[in-house]
Each structure stands twice: as structure tokens, then as C-alpha cells.
Nucleic acid binder design. Structure first.
Lengths: 117, 117
DNA sequence: ACACATTACTTTGTCTGTCAATGTAATATG
DNA sequence: CATATTACATTGACAGACAAAGTAATGTGT
């Protein structure tokens, strides 16, 4: 995969990305990990350690809820469900992303050249 | 100023922002500080401590060059000039920003790049 | 049957960028 | 002449990302 994205460019978006995945239905760690790779067209891999750190953070803050799957056979899976507060948080983060995106466009691409595609 | 941009959303872009300012001509710390606020329409303030940290980092890596202004009267000013390598770095960072922007749009909004203003 | 890959979750320790707090010293303003 | 502003700089703390390592189960190839 041609993942060339510096971690600093993603920093701060991890929670939002996870919430967006859970918005579409309950899921568990490893599947979320795979989903994010797929969603980005194999262009970005959110590392497992980062994911599980984020799960704990999000649950502590009441944005997601976890429960163990009832797999009678096979490895146990811890599922996550997005909470009401998590949905609101997602909407808020999305707004902030759009806002920051516009400001960054000005600060990075703004100035003299106008060689926009 | 309505600066409600989380620092994590800017993290990693500081160097690019500074290089973009210097691309338009030599400048010194405090003026760069003011320029960034102005460029963002008072929506973002890059803190002085962060700026000066970045200057040292950028100079150490050969992306900018510093020299003292010859103010015969008035406070001394340390000017910065962008180096060749800095210009290349800027172009590279800009590319990475555009790439990351598209990936983030997918991961956060779940759709395709709607780069609306 | 045995080795290896994959799934699945978790913890520990390290690194880096940002920034609050604080400091210096000069000039400009009311 | 007191205060604000300009201008540069250092220190210490914090938080997020993640490499590395570990545990334990299932699936696959030979």
C-alpha cells in the first residue's frame, strides 16, 4: 500500500474516523482496523495500538459503549456501539474538520501562486 | 477571533505554513506570527513558542536560513529566508496535504472530496 | 500431525510537536 | 513616565501515535 501520510497529518482525526465507522453499525477492533484501510482505498492504515488506545479514550468519555460478543466458538470479540453523545461528537468534529480544512487551504496553498488544478 | 481550531488539527502543518509565508519573501518571527493570523482571517493563531521551535527545526534541517537585520536603531530582528531545499520541501508538503485531505474526506465524511469553500 | 499465518485483543515505553508560562529588552504611546 | 507593543527566546509539561512485544485462539498448507 502506498501509504505516504505522515502520522501528524492524521493526528486528532482518529476519534472522528472511528466514530464515523461505528455510525454505520456496531463493530469490533480488528474489523474496524480493516474497514479503515478499505475505506481509504488502501492509502492509510490506522495502527492497532492507536486504535485500541482510542477505544479506551472514547469509552471513558462516554462516546462509545463496548460489549463482548457471544461467540460460543472462536476467539472472543469486543464490540463497540456508538452512543448518543458519540454521534453528537462526530457531527461536531466533522464541522471542525471542514472549518480547519478551509483555513489550512488558505495557509498552505494561499499566497502568490494560483496553479490550482 | 473565533479561533476554535484544535491544535491537533494543525499539528504537522506548522512547517508548511511557515515555508509558505517565506516563499513570498524574507520575514522575521513576529511578522510571520502576524501574517499567519491575517492569512487565516483571524481564524487561527500559531503560538509564538511553536513558531520559534519550528524556526530552529527548519534551520537545522536546512530548509531556511537566518540572518540578523541591520537595524541601526530599534530592536534587532532575525530574518529568515527560504532555501532551495525549503522550496522543494514546501512543494512536497503541499502534495502530501492534498493527498491527506482526500483520504480524510473519505474517512470522516464517508464520501468523495467535496472541497466546498 | 506439524508449522505457519491470520485473527483478535492488550500493555508498556518512547518520541515528537504544541504551547503555557516565563523571561529579557527595546521602542512607541497616551 | 507608566503602560502597551514589538521582538526574540527557553523551559517544562502534556497528549496522541505507535513500535514492540505479548497472549491466545482458529485456519491453512504440506
Amino acid at each position: 500500500m502506498g501509504s505516504k501520510i505522515s502520522t501528524d497529518l492524521i493526528r486528532g482525526h482518529t476519534d472522528t474516523i472511528i466514530l464515523n465507522v461505528l455510525r454505520q453499525g456496531d463493530s469490533y477492533g480488528y474489523q474496524i482496523y480493516k474497514t479503515i484501510i478499505e475505506l481509504s482505498n488502501n492509502q492509510y492504515e490506522l495502527k492497532e495500538a492507536t486504535l485500541y488506545t482510542a477505544f479506551r479514550r472514547l469509552e471513558k468519555e462516554g462516546y462509545i459503549v463496548s460489549y463482548w460478543g457471544d461467540e460460543t466458538q472462536g476467539g472472543r470479540r469486543k464490540y463497540y456501539r456508538i452512543a448518543e453523545e458519540g454521534l453528537e461528537r462526530y457531527q461536531q468534529n466533522k464541522k471542525e474538520w471542514k472549518f480547519a480544512k478551509n483555513v489550512l487551504n488558505k495557509l498552505i496553498e494561499g499566497g502568490i501562486d494560483t496553479d490550482e488544478k
